[in-house]
């Protein structure tokens, strides 16, 4: 493996990790506030469809992004209604949202475009263009740093940079602002926050809506940044991998970055090399690479390698005493 190959793999790692990272941070906001969200997948899928559909019709990727995010927010609102207002089971609500998105996108897609659930291929302004960072061209001649800058850091779409910048932003919001303190507090001990005169309901709705926003960005990136259009069930379990990354990172923003990069790397390697020959051990089948994020998450959940402890009030609807 030479330097150029490594760079290419890392480059695609970053590209593949970006949607995971956005969805993972989305889940982080929601779960830190005590609302479990296994509907990340569905929200991403809805956003992917509506962003691609609107971008295909209007030719503007920005209108697409807006529509995708709006769709994701609507699903987030349903999740909020079910789990906050009506104190329903958050997991069941998440399952419902995933099916709703999977069914509605294919159904509406077929009736709008008649392409078997796909949207027309996007081109030009219908997609997010790659951004060439300043000096990428001039610096590419410099050994090591030049190619790293030109190949790896430069030349991604805007949403990739937003995903990476969302990590420090999330950290800052959650751990350095009053809003973040309260958000984390309603996830640990909502009664205490209520006693302090802060609305648990309001705080949780904020968290769920931020989750919807970030899932919207993740889905729009999938359909208009990474791919050129929507295909049926294109999230293909990415929402669940993001969920796995969230647990893997123990609900912390910086760890989430590393977890998503790791899972992105696994995917990148899996795409590039179908079956990997390891001297002395034999062949690692591609299916193993695909299953590895899930296996790693189970191992982490089992607490054999560092224990993952979820927010204490997670999954429980808050009932104010009467």
């Amino acid at each position: 493996m030479d330097f150029a190959t490594i760079l290419q793999i890392l480059d695609s790692t970053l590209r593949l990790a970006a949607p995971l990272l956005l969805a993972c941070l989305a889940g982080l906001f929601s779960e830190r506030s005590g609302i479990f969200d296994i509907g990340l997948e569905g929200k991403m899928l809805a956003s992917a469809f509506f962003s691609a559909a609107v971008a295909a019709v209007t030719g503007s990727v920005w209108l697409g992004l807006l529509a995708g995010t709006a769709a994701s927010l609507v699903l987030a609102l349903i999740h909020g209604l079910a789990s906050i207002t009506f104190r329903g089971n958050q997991l069941i609500s998440g399952v419902a949202i995933n099916f709703l998105a999977s069914g509605l996108t294919a159904f509406i897609g077929q009736s709008w475009f008649g392409l078997g659930g796909q949207t027309p291929a996007l081109s030009g302004d219908g997609r997010f263009a790659r951004l060439e960072l300043p000096f990428a061209e001039t610096l590419s001649g410099v050994p090591v740093i030049g190619p790293v800058y030109a190949e790896l850091i430069s030349g991604h779409t805007l949403l990739v940079y937003i995903a990476v910048l969302a990590v420090p932003a999330t950290w800052w919001v959650l751990f350095r602002t009053r809003f973040g303190l309260r958000l984390r507090a309603v996830g640990e001990n909502p009664a205490a926050v209520d006693t302090a005169g802060v609305s648990v309901t309001g705080q949780r709705y904020w968290a769920v809506m931020i989750c919807g926003l970030l899932c919207g960005l993740a889905g729009a990136y999938l359909a208009t940044g990474m791919a050129a259009g929507f295909v049926r069930d294109m999230t293909a379990g990415k929402g669940y991998i993001a969920l796995a990354a969230l647990i893997f990172s123990k609900w912390r923003p910086w760890y989430a970055l590393w977890a998503c990069l790791l899972f992105g790397l696994l995917e990148a390697i899996g795409i590039r090399y179908q079956n990997i020959d390891v001297a002395g051990i034999g062949t690692i089948p591609v299916q193993f690479m695909q299953a590895l994020p899930y296996i790693l998450t189970v191992v982490i959940l089992a607490g054999f390698v560092g224990r993952a402890i979820p927010p204490r009030a997670g999954g429980q609807p808050y009932v104010k005493e009467r």
């Binding site: 009506f86 069941i92 609500s93 419902a96 995933n98 709703l100 509605l104 659930g117």
Partner: peptide, 27 residues
């Protein structure tokens, strides 16, 4: 015009209403 995925939508709505939004009717 109505594709098979309509069933997934119905399934999702059944889960949503009978499972997650049960209290909306129950209370």
């Amino acid at each position: 015009a109505v594709s098979r995925e309509m069933i997934l939508v119905i399934q999702a709505l059944v889960i949503l209403f009978t499972g997650a939004l049960d209290n909306m009717v129950r209370i």
